[in-house]
Design a protein around this nucleic acid. Structure first.
Length: 312
DNA sequence: TTCGAACGATTGCGCGCATT
DNA sequence: AATGCGCGCAATCGTTCGAA
C-alpha cells in the first residue's frame, strides 16, 4: 500500500479494498493452518486453486481429495454478525450498526460443485461425490441463519472445527471410488493447470506500473530514497543503513506483480543499476528458481523477511 | 579518553567469457 | 542479444596505534 502515492486519485478506494483483501487473506491463512492437522495420506488438501472446467477457469480456496469424495472448502473471514438467507441467496453482515449484503456462499459452492463436476468430465476422471463446507475463519464472528435446514446448517463451520468436520463428512461416504493412482493423477493435473488465483494486485486494483513507486524503502523513515553502497543500503534522507532493505522490495514485487521475478525486473523495481548486483541480491534472496540463463525466473521465498538491521 | 590516520583482511563489483 | 557466473582487483570495514 505504501508503494502507491497518497496523491493517486484512487488511493481511498484502494485503501478500503486493501483492508478488505487483507482480511480475506488472513482468513485463508487460518483455514490453511487447520487443514494442516489433517493426515495428508488420507485427506490430501490442495490449497488456493484455479481450475478449468473446459469452458472457464474457477477458483477454490481449498480442496480435500480422498478416494471417497472431493470436499470444497470456501473460507470467509467476515467480522461482525453474519446472517445467512438461503431462500434469497444473500448473506447479510452487520457491523458497527451497518448492514452489508454479500453473495450467498452456498450458491457460490453450488456453482463450484457444478464446475468441479465438469472439470472431472473434462479431464476424464471417474465421477466422485462432491461435498462442500463454508468455513468462518474469524472466531469472533456471530453466525445466524434464516429458515435453514439442518443439513445446510452443518455445512457452516468454524476454522477450528475443520479437521473434525472433514472426518465426519468422510464417514458419510463408504465407497472408495478413486484409486491412489487416480488421486495422484488428479493432483498432478491440478498442479499442472494451477495458476495462483489471487490476481496480480495491479490488475485487481486497476493500477498501472507507473502508479507504483519504485526503489527500496528505508525501514525507519519510509522514504524510497535508499542507495546501494558496497554492502549496504544507505538512506539519503535519514542516513540510516540496512543490509537487507531490498528484501521488503522483493516482497512488495511478489505481492503487487507476481511471485516470479527476473533479474531485469528486479533491477527496474528496486532501481538497482548494476545487473550483477541485482542478480546477486536476487539469487541470495530467492534460492528457488526455474529456467536457465535469459529465461530464469526466481520464485519468492516469503521466509526471507528483512531482519530490520538498520542503524544510524 | 577521543579522534583520526594507517594498514591488513574481507568482500563485492566489473570485466569478460560461456551459454542459450 | 541477453544472461549467468568465474576471476582479479579495488573499495570498504574493522582494528590498531599514536597524537592531542
Amino acid at each position: 500500500m505504501n508503494r502507491v502515492s497518497t496523491d493517486n486519485p484512487h488511493w481511498t478506494t484502494l485503501h478500503e479494498q486493501f483492508l478488505k483483501m487483507s482480511a480475506g487473506l488472513a482468513g485463508e491463512t487460518t483455514a490453511d493452518h487447520y487443514l494442516r492437522y489433517l493426515p495428508s495420506s488420507e485427506f490430501q488438501p490442495l490449497i488456493d486453486l484455479q481450475l478449468y472446467d473446459g469452458i472457464q477457469h474457477f477458483q477454490v480456496d481449498a480442496l480435500v481429495v480422498n478416494p471417497k469424495l472431493l470436499l470444497i472448502i470456501e473460507v470467509k473471514n467476515y467480522k461482525g454478525e453474519l446472517i445467512f438467507d438461503l431462500e434469497h441467496h444473500q448473506l447479510f453482515r452487520k457491523i458497527d450498526s451497518k448492514t452489508d449484503i454479500f453473495p450467498d456462499p452456498f450458491l457460490q459452492v453450488e456453482i463450484q460443485t457444478l464446475q468441479l463436476t465438469r472439470c472431472l468430465q473434462h479431464y476424464n476422471f471417474p465421477p466422485l461425490p462432491i461435498y462442500s463446507l463454508i468455513v468462518i475463519a474469524n472466531p469472533n464472528t456471530a453466525i445466524q441463519t434464516l429458515d435453514m435446514d439442518q443439513q445446510n446448517l452443518k455445512r457452516i463451520i468454524r476454522a477450528k472445527q475443520l479437521p473434525f468436520a472433514v472426518r465426519e463428512i468422510d464417514k458419510m461416504f463408504i465407497d472408495e471410488v478413486w484409486s491412489a493412482g487416480t488421486i495422484q493423477h488428479f493432483q498432478q493435473q491440478v498442479r499442472k493447470k494451477h495458476r495462483p488465483y489471487r490476481k496480480s494486485i495491479l490488475i485487481q486494483f486497476q493500477l498501472e506500473e507507473k502508479d507504483i513507486i519504485k526503489g527500496v524503502q528505508c525501514p525507519p523513515c519510509g522514504q524510497f530514497r535508499m542507495s546501494l553502497k558496497r554492502d549496504h543500503w544507505y538512506c539519503v534522507k535519514c542516513s540510516c543503513r540496512s543490509k537487507d532493505a531490498h528484501l521488503q522490495s522483493l516482497m512488495d514485487y511478489q505481492l503487487l506483480i507476481g511471485k516470479e521475478i527476473t533479474t531485469p525486473d528486479f533491477m527496474k523495481f528496486a532501481r538497482i543499476e548494476s545487473r550483477k548486483v541485482a542478480w546477486r541480491l536476487l539469487s541470495e534472496a530467492c534460492p528457488e528458481y526455474y529456467g536457465e540463463t535469459r529465461s530464469r525466473k526466481y520464485i519468492g521465498n516469503n521466509q526471507s523477511q528483512p531482519a530490520s538491521s538498520s542503524t544510524n
